[in-house]
Simulated assay, not measured.
Amino acid sequence: MGIEVSADNVVTINDQHEKGVDTSVAGNPNKSRFKGIPLFHVFKRNQRGARRDDGNPLIHALKDRRGFSILPFWRNLIMSRAKAILEKSKAELEGFDFVMPMPSSSPFCAQFAEMVSQVAGAPLLASDFLRKRTVGEVLAEVKAHPPKVRPGKTSSLASQVHAWEKMSPESQYQAKEVDLSLRPLFSGFAMDGDIPDVQGKRVLVVDDLFATGSSLLSVREILGGQMGAEVCGLCFLSGT
C-alpha cells in the first residue's frame, strides 16, 4: 500500500506494494519521541523503491506544489485512511486541551489539523500568534551566538550565512531552503500579536511532514519554554 508517481508527477496509491510510504490503515499509526517530544505519525515513509524522495511527492501533491498533483479520488482515499488511523488512536488523542496546526503557507496543514481536532474532541488553537522570523533576525542570532557544528559542516554553515547576507534582511526565513543537517540549528518562528493563555495546557501540534524536526523544536521552545504548555506532535508523514 504505497505510492506511485507518474512521469508527469501525478501521485496515486498502489495497494500492491508499500514503496515510498505505507498508506495502509493496518500498518499505522507509528509513535516515537524526538528531543523529548512525543510524536504520532499517521503514515510512515520508507526508502523502498527507486525514488529517493520517499513520501515527499504525496505531500507535494496534497499541497499542490512543485509540479505534483493528485486526483480527487486518490486524495479522498488517502484522507479517509488518515481519519481511520486517527480513530485508532482516539483514546490517546482525547487527552489534549488544544490542537494547533503548524504555521504554513499551504492550507493543507490547517485542514488536516481540523480533522485531528474532530477526532480528538479538542478545540483548534489558531497559530496566528506565531510568525516566521526574517532572514535578518536569524542571521543576527547566528552572528551573535555562532552555533556549534560538526567539523564537516563548517563550510556548509559559512555558505548558508553568505547566502543570507546577500538576501534582503526582511525576507522570510525558509527552512526548506536550508541544508537538512543545519535546520535544527535555527529557530524559525517568533511570537507576534495576541498571545493565548496555554499555561499548563496540553497542546498537540500538527504538521504535514516530519523532516528534521526543526519547526517542531522552534514551536516547542515558544509554547513550552515561553508559554508554559506541554507539547506533543502529530505528523501526517513520518521521517524515514
Rank of each mutant, 00 (worst) to 15 (best):
V198M: 07
L237S: 11
Q226D: 11
E114M: 08
T12N: 03
V178C: 10
S214V: 13
P151L: 01
R202D: 14
V135A: 02
W74V: 08
P72M: 04
L182Q: 15
Q199R: 13
L130S: 06
D53N: 14
G121C: 07
R81L: 05
T12V: 12
L124W: 13
S215G: 13
F236I: 07
M100C: 09
S6P: 12
G224R: 00
R81G: 08
A158M: 08
N56I: 11
E18S: 09
A26K: 12
V99N: 01
A122W: 14
L182I: 09
G67N: 12
T212N: 00
V10L: 07
F98E: 00
P57S: 11
E170Q: 11
E230I: 02
T154V: 10
R33Y: 10
P103S: 12
T12I: 06
S181V: 15
Q172R: 09
I70M: 15
I85T: 01
C235F: 12
F186W: 06
E221A: 15
D22I: 05
V142G: 00
D64G: 04
K201S: 04
E141D: 15
T134N: 06
H145W: 06
I3V: 09
S69V: 10
K201C: 03
E4K: 08
G200F: 02
E177P: 00
